[in-house]
Amino acid sequence: MENAAKPALWMRLANPAAFNALADKLLWPLVIACLAAFAYGLYGSFFTSPADYQQGETVRIMYIHVPAAWLALFTYAGMSVSALGTLVFRHPMADVAQKAAAPIGAAFTLICLITGSFWGKPMWGTWWEWDARLTSVLILFLIYLGIIALWRAIDDPLRGARAVAILTLVGAVNLPIIKFSVDWWYTLHQPASVFRMGGPTIHKSMLTPLFVMGLAYLLLYFVLLIIRMKTELMNRRIERLRIAAADHAARAGG
């Protein structure tokens, strides 16, 4: 098979050793880039960006709130791709990635909710407003929690992976419908005058820190994903070794 082309990267990554090698190579550059992006983004959001003419200084909350919403959706999109990888392509890394990603997505969704609440208190006068966007994010958070709960409930990793993959895809189909229905429900019930964070008019000087913070979140996502995937791989190997050892002991004893 000398003429055979080198298999595609994602095929080679099906081997845990190959994955670990690539992960180790990528990890530190990613960590450094992530720290740099956070430093630059935080500096920008606190010092260089001006106060908004409507929201005043509270607009600074937007720099951690809006990118968190981006990452919450991005993580779900990634999990849906992993779910397809599990169900259609049977890629052995897909469910490892999905299991590692779920808590990260839930954390970003939680950040989006909490910072939204801290923004809402001074702007709306209440800690929680049944605003269309916040409500949609809340439902996304519930779906994340459901996925994590299902992972925990089924102890066989392979069976759990398939069940979670199906749930993730069903959720992916439903999310646009949920988003649409919540928006639709909101226009029926709420006055349109309520403030929204990061509305249609964002000043240019605010875009740079916003995108840099988004990049910092994204890099952090990848760093955490790699670490958690490596952990999951080790845990699965531990499980296999334990079973083998128990087998061995049983045979020696019996």
Binding site: G56, A68, I111, F118, W119
Partner: peptide, 21 residues
């Protein structure tokens, strides 16, 4: 400004969640 506490609190909350993760 007057809402400094809310801004700081939201940054701290974000830091705590990400730090814990």
């Amino acid at each position: 400004g007057q809402h400094g506490a809310f801004i700081v609190a939201s940054y701290i909350a974000t830091g705590v969640i990400l730090g814990a993760l």
